[in-house]
């Protein structure tokens, strides 16, 4: 009996270790590449041989790689989209969960159906539409951050509204009934009862939305041709895509710099995110 236990524990450890090695292999490679002064893929080795910060310096000083601009573009686009889509989504979720009106059920079912289509499926139509908007409003047309943000907002609205509605449903009705008796308007109930109560959920939904937008590639590559307007996903792709060999070192350094904040954020909010995962969202 004892023997089978040891054997069973052994295969568990072996399997876990196999996956751990698989998991850290690329992370290890990227870390040692980022400190290798030769900087090219050609000179990379599996064991670290030299150490230098030169790749990180290239990243900050090279005029052809506006890396910090890309990071900034991605971060502020993702943050704006997260905040705005949560605000607008929370308003809708509140109405669907708490207010009674005609067409509510149909509206909800429509929302549920619309949100299954990722925005980029309609890429040809989006392109033509935004090209036309560009001719009169360049700031929100093709090639602009404004236009991209509007498309992102539309796309994440449905999902966020749906996720938040599920949470608001779980807040006891008695709370707002009591507030109603005290003479609170629906807006007061929303701001003073619902928003404070669901702050953690709003934060996690916003975080998931942030990560999703940060990772988005298709629409960003379609929209942003100007090097200085690119997001980090489009920027890094164009810069390694052209000559992976030569840019491998700076790319490795850049991917570490860009990943660290997101990984930290993710690990920090892990518990909440995992709760959200099990209730049915998929990482974008």
């Amino acid at each position: 009996m004892k023997r089978t236990n040891i054997r069973s524990a052994a295969w568990r450890h072996i399997y876990a270790w196999a996956l751990i090695l698989f998991s850290i292999f690329p992370i290890y490679v990227v870390i040692i590449s980022s400190f290798d002064p030769a900087g090219g893929l050609a000179s990379s080795t599996l064991l670290p041989q030299r150490f230098s910060w030169v790749n990180y310096e290239t990243l900050f000083t090279s005029p052809t790689i506006p890396f910090m601009t890309w990071i900034w573009n991605s971060s502020y686009l993702a943050a704006l989209n997260a905040i705005l889509s949560i605000v607008v989504g929370a308003f809708s979720a509140f109405a669907f969960s708490r207010l009674r009106f005609k067409g509510r059920k149909t509206g909800l079912q429509t929302l549920l159906l619309i949100q299954v289509f990722p925005a980029f499926l309609a890429l040809a139509a989006i392109y033509v539409m935004m090209e036309r908007i560009y001719t009169i409003f360049p700031a929100i047309g093709l090639g602009s951050h404004g236009g991209l943000l509007l498309i992102y907002l539309g796309g994440s609205m449905g999902v966020n509204a749906w996720l938040l509605k599920g949470f608001i449903d779980s807040i006891p009705m008695e709370l707002d009934e009591a507030a109603k008796i005290d003479g609170a308007t629906p807006f007061q109930i929303f701001w003073q009862i619902f928003v404070p109560l669901s702050a953690p959920v709003l934060a996690v939904t916003a975080l998931l939305s942030f990560i999703g937008t940060f990772n988005e590639f298709v629409l960003a590559s379609l929209f942003l041709q100007d090097v200085n307007l690119r997001t980090v996903a489009v920027g890094l792709q164009s810069f390694v895509g052209a000559q992976f060999g030569a840019n491998w070192g700076p790319f490795a350094a850049g991917s570490i710099l860009a990943s660290v904040p997101l990984v930290a954020l993710f690990l920090f909010a892990q518990r909440y995110i995992i709760g959200g995962l099990v209730s049915g969202s998929v990482k974008g």
């Binding site: 390694v240 490795a252 991917s255 990943s259 993710f266 990482k283």
Partner: peptide, 26 residues
């Protein structure tokens, strides 16, 4: 084990892209 999920996916994909390079990939 949760790390691969936390790293931005486009980044990991590009890293793997270099790692499968024929001549120099890890």
């Amino acid at each position: 084990l949760i790390l691969p999920y936390a790293i931005p996916s486009f980044m990991s994909i590009l890293i793997w892209n270099g790692m499968f390079n024929r001549d120099f990939g890890a």
